[in-house]
Amino acid sequence: MKNRASVITMTLYLLFLLIPIYWLVNMSLKTNTEITSTFSIYPQTLTFANYITILTDPSWYMGYVNSMIYVVMNTVISITVALPAAYAFSRYSFMGDKHLFFWLLTNRMSPPAVFALPFFQLYSSIGLFDTHIAVALAHCLFNVPLAVWILEGFMRGVPKEIDETAYIDGYSFPRFFIRIFMPLVASGIGVAAFFCFMFSWVELLLSRTLTAVDAKSIAATMTRTVSASGMDWGVLAAAGVLTIIPGALVIYFVRNYIAKGFALGRV
């Protein structure tokens, strides 16, 4: 009896989650005249014209390319600097470690809106405005703390005896770290990378503020098109669907760790 109630609850909840997404997909497969003239819950005349528009127009698909570039840059930078730091936090106690750990978390908590303008001025003054690296560095604001926290959570689970044995066997620290320790926390690195990728991918405010033309992100391309070319709902919906795909593709691989990642490694 209880089981059936659970099934019904879950079905309702998942429907609630999926219907708006379905509607977006539905819109993306319609022509604009059909969207505005008739109301139907599935496309009457199936068309891929909206997708073709996006995939053939450089001002659209370059948005995806730009986003991908800065997202990957950000992920690589974040993980590289976060690895040694997370190791230090998980293994050693040192002066100010707790304060530092909390200070890192505060950066994850700071509203991007507070930083938008100073970032704009900072990167303009050092000539990085409208480059991919500017957005990648700006996103480090919240991704580096996130990566440190997630990795620290995973590293805590690795027994300290392994480190000690490796040192007795004569491994130097860098060699031990790369050859022995990193493979042990590989799943943690994967999860941290996934979350850096994701939070950089979904962020709009900073990427829009820091780019104009050359490095314009897909999120910014979308908002500007809404205001500029009026109501091109079909193309807008298609662009939306295409932004969901990267997340949807990789989510399967991290499904068992996703809660741990969202909890900043604290589950």
Binding site: V202, L204, A219, M222, L236, T243
Partner: peptide, 23 residues
Amino acid sequence: CLVLMALPLLIPFNVVGTIWQIF
């Protein structure tokens, strides 16, 4: 269920706005 439930979390924030606008 895990995969489907995580789906909304991975949608770019502005697309979330767009989805609900269209919806």
